[in-house]
Design a binder for these strands. Structure first.
Length: 667
DNA sequence: CGGTCTATAATTTTT
DNA sequence: TTATAGACCG
């Protein structure tokens, strides 16, 4: 463990404190991931078995990154035996073994938010009276909140009668479809531990050492889960930073980290305050902002990186000028230092703010990467194919079944489907089961009957094939798609050739992903589908990331770092956002600003506009109230007009020349 | 039923 | 400005 000497004293303490509860307060850029990975290596070195170590993260990305880094420190077989995953993946793993106690089958399907919404829409349409209206999105949020708040209580929350009815029905239908949603994964696992002491003990014994990353982002249920798992051995190490808690609006409880000792008594507490990322100026600015939050564990970041340039704060006339200024500033620095575009990030509060930037960057032909936007999985063809595969894995999942029952059209029309749904409701069976029943088939015309029988036979045949132990899933999937002529369907539904080609490529991509999956996993189709649902952020996973300026929201920027960071739109109403000025959410907005500041390694520029075009019309803006808290010792306020009137510097002129030549050359 | 029109509202989004 | 949902009409 010679590598231990690479760590600072606090980090070493955190790594070596293996027994009993441990709270690591890891400020931004203080080497948090390093501590966790080293701690895992240290535990193994001390003789702990890899199978007894559990490390939980929030995102798949974090889990993958951690696994990669641990793999460099420990033996390969050990690395494989570690349980290193997200909360939800851990719950899936546990529930695949235990869920039958709750009346589900172990091949349960996981509904993502789109599935949830589709189901809720269906239910609202079915049960609401004509004069009643309920926004499905609102209903989804109510249901999720109710499930999270009342998971101990069987009765739904006292919402409006329609919402309560939808809630009730929703839960019934999920169960009937042998499906669970994201909340259920946590709820059922916690309930499992609560209600079955022997099972709880089994898992407590399994995981002797538990680590939780980003603990400030855990919600109530995730805390419960950790409490149960760690109850016996108490070797629970949580790592996080209350100052970076920015997901309160999604149910994260900062209290979990602020009151850690209530749940795990007498923990060791280690503060990591030495920052390895930023200059002293940037940290000074960050400290001066976060200091104003009342409920927090005080920390003061410091670094040996030197003072660096002062943080620049600049008021610009309007949002167009803002975009202009930021981009030309980046262009200038890129040119002068011959830097790659990768080193620059522009950070904003709302996705809408990226628009102007994009327009400008496109016009100037500067490469950029826009982070965020959930797309791949919202594409119809991807959803369709996953629905097909889902039906092969769990044909009783009505939602997925109905999605594809007549796609491509195969002679099972709406009236037949309605009849089948009605029958299935009456007999409390799935639509698929209904289709198989002779009683139902007798109700149909001979032509429809043939179509239904053919479809049932098709599913049954492939279901069998998929279940073969040595089944090559991607080959089967491809064969299946060809047999139902999905490519044809795709072409028929596309207006342009271009669109069709694009969608076909998406299909190939998915099949390829399935093929890759099978090379590294033995969990079959069920496992693949779960992974697809639990890891939807797989847009550019395969593509090698090209060079470009990063455009990103404050939220999405957490955990990342860039040499040169521009925080834009620091205006009252945007950051802090108007919609968050109710109850105590101002703290979180401040933390958001803090997160933004601490992304910067070398330079930080903050802009705000005097006027901004909001919803089409210009409206005056005031500087964010947070700006006045910035320690003047680390900040330089620049007058925009002075810069604007400067003649173009040599660097800029050269840039323009180069661009022009490039343009001309291309013609 | 499906297309077009009009009113309305407008963060952030790990699983 | 723009996206979306509901109304409205052919």
């Amino acid at each position: 463990m010679a590598r231990l000497f690479d760590l600072n004293p606090e980090q070493q303490t955190a790594v070596k404190c293996t027994e009993g509860p441990l709270l690591v307060l890891a400020g931004a850029g203080t080497g948090k991931t390093r501590v966790i990975t080293m701690r895992i290596a240290y535990l193994l070195h001390q003789g702990a078995s890899a199978a007894s170590i559990l490390a939980v993260t929030f995102t798949n990305k974090a889990a993958n990154e951690m696994r990669a880094r641990v793999s460099q420190l420990v033996d390969k077989p050990d690395a494989k035996k570690l349980t290193l995953c997200t909360f939800h993946a851990l719950c899936v793993r546990i529930l695949r073994q235990e869920i039958e106690r709750f009346g589900y089958k172990s091949n349960f399907t996981i509904y993502d938010e789109a599935d949830q919404l589709a189901l809720i829409r269906k239910i609202i349409a079915r049960i609401s009276a004509t004069n009643e209206k309920l926004d499905p999105n609102l209903a989804k949020n109510l249901i999720s909140r109710a499930k999270n708040e009342h998971w101990r209580i069987k009765e739904p929350a006292g919402e409006s009668s329609l919402a309560a009815a939808v809630f009730h029905r929703y839960q019934e239908e999920l169960k009937a479809a042998n499906a669970v949603d994201f909340d259920d994964l946590l709820i059922l696992t916690v309930r499992l531990f609560e209600e079955y002491v022997d099972t709880a003990e089994k898992w407590q014994n399994r995981y002797r050492y538990i680590m939780v990353d980003e603990f400030q982002d855990t919600n109530r249920l995730q805390l419960e889960l950790v409490r149960y798992l760690g109850a016996k051995h108490q070797n629970v190490c949580v790592v996080g930073d209350d100052d970076q808690s920015i997901y309160g609006w999604r149910g994260a409880e900062v209290a979990n980290i602020l009151e850690f000792e209530h749940h795990f008594p007498k923990p060791a507490i280690v503060k990591l305050e030495q920052n390895y990322r930023s200059t002293a100026s940037i940290l000074g600015a960050a400290n001066s902002i976060i200091r104003h939050n009342p409920r927090r564990r005080p920390k003061t970041l410091w670094s040996r990186n030197g003072e660096g340039e002062k943080v620049v704060v600049l008021e610009v006339p309007d949002d167009h000028e803002e975009a202009n200024f930021v981009i030309s500033e980046i262009q200038k620095r890129q040119q002068i230092g011959n830097l790659s575009w990768n080193r620059f990030a522009i950070v904003f509060r709302m996705n809408a703010q990226s628009r102007l930037l994009e327009e400008n960057l496109r016009r100037l032909r500067i490469p950029y990467r826009l982070i965020g936007g959930r797309s791949f999985f919202e594409r119809r063809e991807v959803k369709d194919i996953l629905a097909y595969l889902s039906c092969l894995a769990n044909p009783n999942d009505d939602l997925n079944f109905l999605r594809i029952i007549n796609t491509p059209a195969r002679g099972i029309g709406n009236s037949t489907i309605e009849l089948a749904v009605a029958e299935s409701n009456q007999h409390q069976t799935s639509v698929y089961q209904t289709l198989l029943s002779p009683a139902f088939l007798d109700l149909l015309s001979s032509r429809t009957r043939t179509a239904v029988e053919k479809f049932a036979e098709l599913l049954d045949r492939y279901e069998t094939e998929v279940l073969q132990p040595l089944a090559n899933l991607s080959v089967i999937a491809q064969k299946f798609l060809d047999e139902i002529d999905y490519p044809g369907e795709l072409r028929r539904n596309c207006k342009t050739q271009e669109e069709a080609i694009n969608r076909e490529e998406n299909v190939r991509e998915l099949i390829r992903t399935l093929s890759d999956y099978q090379l590294r996993s033995n969990d079959g189709l069920i496992g693949f589908l779960a992974e697809m649902t639990l890891d939807q952020d797989r847009d550019d996973k395969n593509e090698d990331t090209p060079d470009g300026i990063t455009l990103i929201t404050f939220h999405a920027a957490k955990g990342l770092e860039f040499p040169h960071v521009f925080l834009i739109g620091l205006e009252e109403g945007i950051l802090p956002h108007d919609r968050s000025k109710v109850d105590g959410q101002l703290d979180e907005e401040r933390r958001l600003f803090y997160v933004g500041i601490t992304r910067a390694m070398e330079t930080l520029t903050v802009t705000h506009c005097a006027t901004r075009t909001k919803y089409g019309s210009p409206s005056p803006c005031h500087p964010s109230s947070f700006l006045k808290d910035l320690d003047p010792a680390h900040v330089e306020r620049i007058n925009y007009h002075v810069i604007a009137n400067q003649p173009a510097s040599e660097g800029t002129a050269r840039t323009h020349f180069a661009k022009m030549r490039e343009l001309l050359g291309g013609m």
